[in-house]
Amino acid sequence: MVNDFRLVRPKTLPEALGLLDEFGQEIEPVAGGTDLLVKLEDGRIRPSQVMDLSALNELKQIRLVGEDLHLGALVTHTAVLESPLTRTEAPLLVMGCRTVGSTQIRNMGTLGGNLATASPAGDSIPALVALEAKVVLASKKGERTLPVEDFLVGPGKTERRREELIKEIILPCAREGEKGFYNKLGQRNALAISIANVAVWVRLGERKNTLSRVRIAFGALAPTVKRGRMVEDALTDRELDEASLKGITQLAWKEVAPITDIRASAQYRRDMAIALLYQSLYHILFLS
């Protein structure tokens, strides 16, 4: 039978948090709807209540707060692409959001929704992890802040408690000497779920072809988006050329634990961690 849920439509964040406090166990919040509606249609979820967040305009803001960029949970992927703030302060996130689905999906889908869905292949998440973004969870009792990397528990699973709502995402603004690259491999060039993807953030070293800091996040290559700390360390503070880059990026093989599905085999995905990482660093070091 088609799921016939009750709908709640809060007008403000406190109202939404009040509802979650009372009925959190039964409520499924919906932001852009691009994931939830598919699950409803497939009968994969049968919530008794759905909370339409679309009226919560306070969660649609992109703000500069000190050295940080605050992105409301309901900021759409398109808003990220079009905002002058994100373009200058978070270019890596812009690159990631650009590869999401299609124009319509980017117009509807939100950063908070992408995080809450917690797909291992979610295209904005590796960028957030590589940027060491934090997620702010709000409940009636207050707020708590977690690194995005720790917020993710498994495919479709997060640290969000039923009475909490993702309020915003905080990331440090880009600075001089920092660079990023986002590299996605899909079966086609739009409307594609990642076979594998990687987001790379670096701070260039003082010496040519060196990196003083490196952060790497792999998508669709483990149960959650996964940092590649071993390969980050190996890349830091050493002179890199094509050959050494080729050698070091092989370490990515040890960073990931992919699965076989209809899109690709686990073995191929593991090799792609290396290939996509190599290409990303090559772009950063030798092409830009």
Partner: peptide, 27 residues
């Protein structure tokens, strides 16, 4: 380049337009 309906032991692995992919304008 991309199209194939995968059937294993008589069961469809490709069930929809998310897994059955045809070229988009960007391809």
């Amino acid at each position: 380049l991309m199209e194939d309906i995968i059937i294993e032991k008589g069961y469809f692995k490709t069930m929809n337009l998310s897994t059955y992919i045809i070229p988009t304008s960007l391809d």
